[in-house]
Design a binder for these strands. Structure first.
Ligand SMILES: NC(=O)c1ccc[n+]([C@@H]2O[C@H](COP(=O)([O-])OP(=O)(O)OC[C@H]3O[C@@H](n4cnc5c(N)ncnc54)[C@H](O)[C@@H]3O)[C@@H](O)[C@H]2O)c1
Ligand SMILES: NC(=O)c1ccc[n+]([C@@H]2O[C@H](COP(=O)([O-])OP(=O)(O)OC[C@H]3O[C@@H](n4cnc5c(N)ncnc54)[C@H](O)[C@@H]3O)[C@@H](O)[C@H]2O)c1
Lengths: 256, 256
DNA sequence: CGCGATTTGTGCACCTCTTCACAAGCGCCT
DNA sequence: AGGCGCTTGTGAAGAGGTGCACAAATCGCG
């Protein structure tokens, strides 16, 4: 992704707000910690140990401690972390203290599901507008929002100060839509269309591609099948690994 | 994940399955290459250079070459890669030569969209069954498939030899559903519910969490805002960045 | 037949991320 | 007060991934 500039160089006066500048891998895990913390809070826990939180988030406890240490965390040795405080800290770092406005472009099959998803609202976002290019869809109301024509984007973007654009159009339309989003000042895009978007520097794009996820699973499925099918043939010196292999943290993966 | 071990280079027999044992990061990129290759093939290209394919897939060309070299690729120096051959190779490695059967559990808001998604079929998968626990939903027909009660899972799994399970139920139901899937022999799960699944060793779980993606974008949005706010120099110009323009890599990022 | 243009495959250095192991800090109990 | 068990925070080692730079291989052409 983008190259991060180090603040150190220029005479940056007094360091006031203290930009965290977290490792990318850590940033990707913070939302997971946050979700786990909310669950713990709902369950009445006031504090939690790194071990406990790590288990709830499905990661290694040492990794979790290091992640939290990066944001100058406030844990107490011998006790653990204050759940409420930690939630506050992480939300602050992730910029969730303000409820960011999200625009969804492409209200088809998938777009409908996204528009009706309450996980947006409950986790710090507000779907501010729905757009589609199909006149037949314009005017339709979903979850209290009316689908507008994509030509309205410039006007609405200004009114609602859209922070994030979500693309759920067919692949062929994704690049033009991305260009339109960028043109109205959107600097963060979540893309569900199976294609590579090219955007100017300073704009972040994240992609979700179902088929890719399935194909990765397919690879592992394939590998598992080969392993059980032909145990060590010939002089493969290595152990035959009877049952399972690897002992590891399943879950998640990659991401990291 | 996992510990792989393999003799590696020499003496790899002849025309045998020959387990690839690829780096996980490479596996995660192969589907992207595959998609780009299909586009190129449709456009009539017979060969493609690493540079060209890398651009189409949004990655660095050296990385792409290294990835392909891992699967003992058949490129021709001075020419490039044969598109059709490479497609065949990658599909073989990913185990896409057989059309794997996918079971979708939870036919609600999101499940409906997934059930109607043709990206499954066109990329090597077959939705073999739909399940839900709500009696009101059982019997509904979507895209030629009838929603069955989740209790039918054992029978159907045996009949259709389900390879991959997709969970699109509320978070509270995800773990029980995962357990049921594992119980009937499914060893690969794609989870859309925002929760950590615990599964026995040997079962792969991949997770897709929309809110997490948005929160990661939010972090970068937050950081970008702080950066432009601080640098007192001149106006709020976001252009005229230091360093060269760099053309990009953008896209994707992180780990995937 | 040899030469130059082109492109692959990879050694290497660098960087990020992960994980272990342990000292330091904290609260509690005696 | 002092000791004890528990937990954090982190140094250091290792594993894995990335990208440069270049030698080797191949094609086309004169
Ligand atoms: N349906 C799924 O489960 C699913 C899963 C993963 C990825 N996707 C991807 O998400 C995207 C949308 O999938 P879908 O099933 O909803 O498709 P869809 O055809 O049902 O919906 C696409 C919508 O985008 C609108 N659209 C087309 N061009 C537009 C433009 N230029 N501006 C604004 N809107 C435009 C169309 O009018 C339509 O309403 C596709 O790229 C698909 O590959 C879908
Ligand atoms: N809708 C979205 O856009 C979206 C996006 C990202 C993630 N998600 C997640 O996907 C999941 C599904 O979301 P949704 O909006 O479709 O919810 P939904 O409530 O519309 O659908 C859930 C479905 O699962 C069924 N179900 C419940 N328990 C079940 C069980 N034990 N076995 C089988 N089926 C069961 C319900 O009957 C219902 O039909 C949720 O976890 C949600 O957080 C949804």
């Amino acid at each position: 992704m983008s190259q991060h500039r180090h603040p150190g160089a220029p005479g940056s006066a007094g360091a006031v707000p203290a930009l965290p500048d977290l490792p990318e891998a850590t940033v990707a895990r913070l939302p997971e910690y946050l979700r786990a913390l909310h669950n713990l809070a709902d369950a009445g826990h006031e504090t939690v140990s790194s071990e406990g939180l790590a288990a709830a988030a499905g990661v290694n406890s040492a990794k979790l401690r290091k992640d939290l240490s990066h944001l100058g965390s406030y844990g107490t040795r011998g006790v653990g972390y204050d759940v409420a405080l930690l939630i506050e800290q992480i939300e602050s770092v992730l910029g969730l203290t303000q409820r960011r406005a999200v625009a969804l472009v492409g209200v088809g099959n998938l777009g409908h599901a996204l528009a009706g998803y309450d996980g947006f609202a409950s986790r710090g976002f507000r779907i501010a507008a729905l757009f589609d290019a199909d006149p037949a869809r314009v005017g339709e109301e979903i979850n209290g929002l009316v689908v507008q024509h994509v030509d309205e984007l410039p006007r609405v973007a200004a009114e609602e100060s859209i922070a994030i654009g979500v693309i759920a159009t067919p692949a062929a339309a994704a690049q033009p839509v991305a260009d339109q989003l960028v043109a109205v000042g959107v600097t963060s895009i979540l893309n569900f269309a199976p294609c590579v978007l090219s955007v100017p520097e300073g704009v972040d794009v994240r992609k979700v591609d179902l088929a890719i996820e399935l194909q990765i699973l397919s690879f592992h499925e394939h590998r598992k099948a080969s392993l059980t099918a032909l145990p060590a043939t010939g002089g493969s010196a290595l152990t035959a690994l009877p049952g399972g292999l690897a002992a590891n943290d399943s879950q998640e993966a990659i991401g990291t």
